[in-house]
Amino acid sequence: MSINEAREIVQEACVELVKAGLVARTWGNISARVDDEVFVITPSGRRYEDLTVTDMVPVKISDLTHEGSIKPSSEKGLHAEIYKQNKGVNAVIHTHQTHASTVAAARKDITGIGKKHSALLGTTVRVAAYGLPGTGKLARATAEALGASNAALMANHGAVCVGKKMRDAFAVARALEEAAEEFIARSFLSASGQNGPFSLAAMHTFYLNMMAER
């Protein structure tokens, strides 16, 4: 794939992911592999809606150096680590998606994933150990939790989703959000002893009663 083709793929993904509500504003980052040495990633601190194809930044996997004056995402090291480790991965999406981030805030794996999502996610999505944003510690811990799977949670931060193609990584991000939402609902019903179906209003009422008793 050429650098320009990768840039186009990333720019189109920005539009689609914003539409789907999986990324917003400047939060998260998206990349596509060019070859064994280079990937193209969204720039640092810029809004997805404002990005053009030429704003996407080529970065070397080996040393994280980049071409041009536009700075790449500060999470470039995370993407490089994943491309180094998983030769079959050609697209990486890092999101701050709501439900997955909630589970990540509890530093819990998502377990018991049902048939609807297990083809993409497996039965468990692991959570990586905590690292400050943009650090090597975060990159290594996330790549380790990801292993050969398609998704991992990043403790107190968000999620990373990968695929052979960008549309595969996109599908993983969607499936992860649904699986995380179901996991939260199941956990609430189990912890509260309530019978389904899940109700957000019931969860909030239960929470307030629980806090009042403490």
Partner: peptide, 19 residues
């Protein structure tokens, strides 16, 4: 809003882990 959601819902996930 997302921070408050986490604060509430992690109570049912074994508790939120503080940074």
């Amino acid at each position: 809003m997302k921070g408050c959601k986490c604060f509430i819902e992690t109570e049912f996930l074994g508790g939120g882990k503080r940074i």
